[in-house]
Simulated scan of single mutants.
Amino acid sequence: MGSTGMPGSAAVSWSGDGGSAEAEMADVQRRTATGAAVAAVLALLAAGCSTAAGGSGGGSDSGSGRGDAVSAPGMDVGTRIDHALPADILHLPLTDQDGRPTSLAAFKNKVLVVSDIMTLCAETCPLDTANVVQTAQRVEADHAGSDVEFLSITIDPARDTPAQLAAYRRLYSPPPADWQTLTGSPAVVQKLWKYFGVWYQKVPQGKPPAKNWRTGQTLTYDLNHSDEIFFIDGRGHERFVIDGAGHVQPGTVLPPTVRNYLDSEGVNNLEHPDSSSWTVPEGLQTVGWLLGRPLPTGQKSS
């Protein structure tokens, strides 16, 4: 059993390993450009309207509206938007790690933190997952877990079965109750991630080929993909997007199976994160903004 990742802790450790590519890339670029333009306009409007609106406008219109107003995360963190998710996206049939049917709509009135994952990724997904789990643990420790759900949804449904996802989740022992790992049919997963603008493409497996850390089966393909974290408010509106892999807090000890599965690129990403990497305090700030009340980030105010 590892650390619970309480606010302000210096380190966290886990044990108990118990369309076409071109079209999808164009969609990513379109969404990024649109989001950046909207964010720029909103930033200008906020300068003149924040006082009259009673704060940043994040928590007050998120569906919870509790507590003090919290400043929205800056444009240096991600892209601020406000898009209502279509009904067909909200009701896409998904399956959780226990084989139970679910959907985004099943979490109505909750703040959702949605991330794309692949349990057999050796470069970036483990870092994103480490940050997602730490953020979820801190939200849970602040007694806000009933208002927030962290959903890590696969881009690799052929291999990320419920059994694989359940084993992946158990690596982060004890997994926070407000963190779920989800899959769906290939068609559902493709539709979901195409809407959100996550790009992924099947490529040949490297040589020598890696093996599934759970089954020992030799892998026959890999997936190149983008990394994003999507924040959805209680009304079902997409409100904030963070691009890039996680900047894992110094001193964090990844689960042994995950750490050993990293390839050379993954180790470099862990030890030398670039400027686009996102942090747990940034995730907590964004969640707090949508909840309408601050969450302890473990950082001193500037």
Results as ranks from 00 to 15, higher is better:
8 G>D: 05
11 A>R: 15
15 S>Q: 08
46 A>I: 02
46 A>S: 12
16 G>I: 07
29 Q>V: 07
26 A>Q: 03
39 A>Q: 12
38 V>G: 04
22 E>N: 04
27 D>S: 11
14 W>L: 04
28 V>N: 13
34 T>V: 09
33 A>L: 10
6 M>D: 10
7 P>H: 09
49 C>M: 02
37 A>G: 11
16 G>R: 10
35 G>L: 15
20 S>F: 00
31 R>F: 06
34 T>E: 13
51 T>I: 07
32 T>Q: 13
47 A>G: 04
29 Q>C: 04
37 A>M: 13
20 S>H: 02
51 T>M: 07
44 L>D: 15
12 V>W: 04
13 S>F: 08
49 C>E: 02
27 D>R: 15
31 R>Q: 10
25 M>Y: 04
53 A>K: 01
23 A>S: 05
41 V>P: 04
11 A>F: 14
27 D>M: 13
52 A>V: 05
43 A>M: 12
32 T>N: 12
9 S>Q: 14
18 G>E: 13
37 A>E: 14
23 A>N: 01
28 V>E: 11
38 V>M: 11
45 L>C: 00
32 T>S: 13
49 C>G: 01
19 G>K: 05
14 W>K: 06
38 V>R: 14
12 V>Q: 11
35 G>Y: 15
19 G>P: 11
14 W>N: 04
49 C>Y: 01
49 C>A: 03
52 A>R: 05
31 R>M: 09
33 A>Q: 14
12 V>L: 05
43 A>K: 15
25 M>V: 02
35 G>E: 13
27 D>H: 12
41 V>N: 11
19 G>A: 11
26 A>I: 00
41 V>H: 14
5 G>L: 06
18 G>W: 11
40 A>N: 12
33 A>K: 14
29 Q>K: 13
40 A>L: 10
12 V>H: 05
37 A>C: 07
35 G>I: 15
46 A>Q: 12
24 E>W: 00
25 M>E: 04
52 A>C: 03
